[in-house]
Design a protein around this nucleic acid. Sequence first.
DNA 1: CATGCCCCCTGCACGC
DNA 2: TGCGTGCAGGGGGCAT
Length: 302
Amino acid sequence: MPELPEVETVRNGLAPAMENAQILRVEQRRPDLRFPFPSRFVERLQGRRILRLERRAKFLAAHLDSGEVLIMHLGMSGRFTVSSVEPAKLGAPGVVKIVPGQFVHASNRITAHDHVVFELSSGVSIKFNDPRRFGYMDLVPLAELATCKHLGALGVEPLSAEFRGDYLATKAFGRKTDLKAFLLDQRVVAGLGNIYVCEALHRARLSPKLKAGSLATKAGGPTQRAERLVVAIREVLLNAIAAGGSTLRDYAQVDGALGYFQHSFRVYGREGDPCVADNCGHPIRRIVQSGRSTFYCSSCQR
DNA sequence: CATGCCCCCTGCACGC
DNA sequence: TGCGTGCAGGGGGCAT
């Protein structure tokens, strides 16, 4: 699920409960997720204080007062749920579930696929639930954070000042791969996934089947396509974050005010629907690239 | 190095 | 109702 806007939304939801809180207790309910948990995982967390919670690409990074950083990846189906340990104390039903940007009431009980539970001094317990177990957690020293195996090869953050047409052109120069696959490559742009690549390409009016190399001129500079793409990626991500991300599954008790960017999709999941671009109306097509669905308008995306 | 394919895992929607 | 098939927001690993 979680692409950059969803992870950013989860970070925003978790940060108030996690930052400056002490980890009182950790329950690790299985030996591995996608990868084994690091050795002595529970012991290295319990008693530590969380200094701050950051997002990098699709990762969450909780900086600890031990000098280590807890890295968390949500994979496809990872979710965090925050519930108050003692609801009465906080004076509310007090139970908040953080799905991509959505806050819904959740039970305090352990349910299927709850793999990790953190109990914090801020009075909440935070559960990590991940049915498919493509997510994972790791602990790395702060000094090695930027170069560790998880973050070391990542490209620039698309919402940072370094993300510009000339950056894309440099990365794309001479590349024969599809523009779609190029943008999904986390070493190029860190945080895009299948949905937002489709949406950005439509907004930039670029075909997902173009060669990535067409973002660079023969001299290696940015083409007009590269500049359009930068603008479109920024715009779609900012709009999605403002909407609290996208939620593709239905939840019984959803706070409708959050996580509604799925209603703003122009192509994703809309095969056969008329293209909403001005004066277009051409039916949206679904094709498969790199083994994943691509939705696009073959008329206005060139 | 770049590229393409398979795989990890569970749940769900759909067709018969 | 039950069952098989295909597909899902990610990305590591391996062959070519």
